[in-house]
């Protein structure tokens, strides 16, 4: 019997590098200047899945992402590193989803795939919420193990997992079906494999094929593994009320850019007299001493 793993991965704007060019003159974030990347902790999640696949006969790794059509990029990225196949769920009706609506949509797709194990990243760097993993587990009514650093043992029925907590570690045993979220202290993802890159570089979703100038018909028939599944709301049999904006209890009331108010500051040099003055001042005002 095969062991099926679904990895939840998200394409995110690279908020770590909000540098000078990503800030507009009015000090708002220029999102389009930020490259779209594979959410870093989801790569750690993928590595955990791939390492289980290395260890188990018959394990398959399916990468699942919800996002706009271009999010298919990260599915290819996962295929280059050893994932078995991928599913993109995309639909305008998902727009405006908060974590609750996102996890509802993802959970429906996971249900269709019937995995033994679901692996998510701990959190996505665009929102930093770390909510989607546990919420998908709740929607699926399966247990969760968060902050996984290492899957120590795995078989069809159970996993032994090392968790990384703020002040220590825990080793836990969980029964399948199970959802785990992976911490950034887990091993980084293996690089792309040259052979897989060649094999999958033409992998496409249906919507991507529409935009291709080249004719893919023959290639897709001969090599069905190049077809990336694409599901819409209709394929998920979803209750639209729980999707997108209407399914999202949280609303963004206001967004402010971070502008630091300038303080009147005293400017000093490294010369003795300046440091002497500063230390006196701090002592006299009882800040120190």
């Amino acid at each position: 019997m095969s062991f099926r793993i679904v990895v939840l991965a998200k394409q995110v704007p690279d908020t770590r590098n909000v540098g000078k060019d990503a800030m507009k003159a009015d000090s708002t974030v220029n999102r389009s200047a930020l490259p779209a990347i594979f959410n870093p902790e989801d790569l750690h999640a993928l590595e955990q899945a791939l390492s289980i696949k290395d260890r188990m006969e018959d394990a398959e790794v399916i990468i699942l992402t919800m996002g706009p059509p271009r999010a298919a990029e990260i599915i290819r990225e996962a295929l280059y590193r050893g994932a078995t196949s991928g599913v993109l769920i995309t639909d305008r009706k998902f727009a405006g989803s908060d974590t609750l609506a996102t996890s509802y949509a993802l959970s429906l797709a996971v249900k269709k795939l019937e995995p033994h194990l679901v692996i998510a990243g701990r959190q996505a760097i665009d929102g930093d919420t770390a909510q989607v993993g546990p919420q998908v587990a709740e929607k699926l009514n399966i247990p969760q193990v968060t902050y996984c650093e290492e899957v120590k043992e795995v078989n069809q029925d159970e996993l032994v997992i090392k968790r990384r907590l703020e002040r220590g570690i825990e080793i836990v045993k969980g029964k399948t079906p199970l959802l785990i979220t992976v911490h950034s202290s887990a091993p980084p993802c293996r690089p792309r494999h040259a052979k897989l890159l060649m094999q999958y570089k033409h992998a496409r979703t249906v919507s991507e094929l529409v935009d291709e100038t080249k004719d893919y018909t023959e290639m897709m028939t001969n090599k069905p593994y190049l077809r990336i599944e694409e599901w819409s709301v209709a394929d998920l049999d979803a209750d639209v009320e729980y999707l997108g904006l209407s399914g999202s209890p949280t609303k963004v009331k206001k967004i402010e850019n971070v502008v630091m108010a300038k303080k009147d500051s005293v400017e000093l040099t490294a010369e003795d007299k300046d440091i002497d003055y500063l230390m006196k001042e701090l002592i006299d005002s009882h800040v120190i001493g």
């Binding site: 908020t15 909000v18 665009d126 930093d128 949280t250 609303k251 963004v252 206001k254 967004i255 971070v258």
Partner: peptide
């Protein structure tokens, strides 16, 4: 309850509300 938090890698501050739940 206005729930105020940094978002987008700390580059913006968002005020989140839950009106109906």
């Amino acid at each position: 309850l206005y729930q105020i938090r940094p978002a987008f890698g700390g580059n913006i501050i968002a005020t989140i509300i839950n009106p109906d739940t």
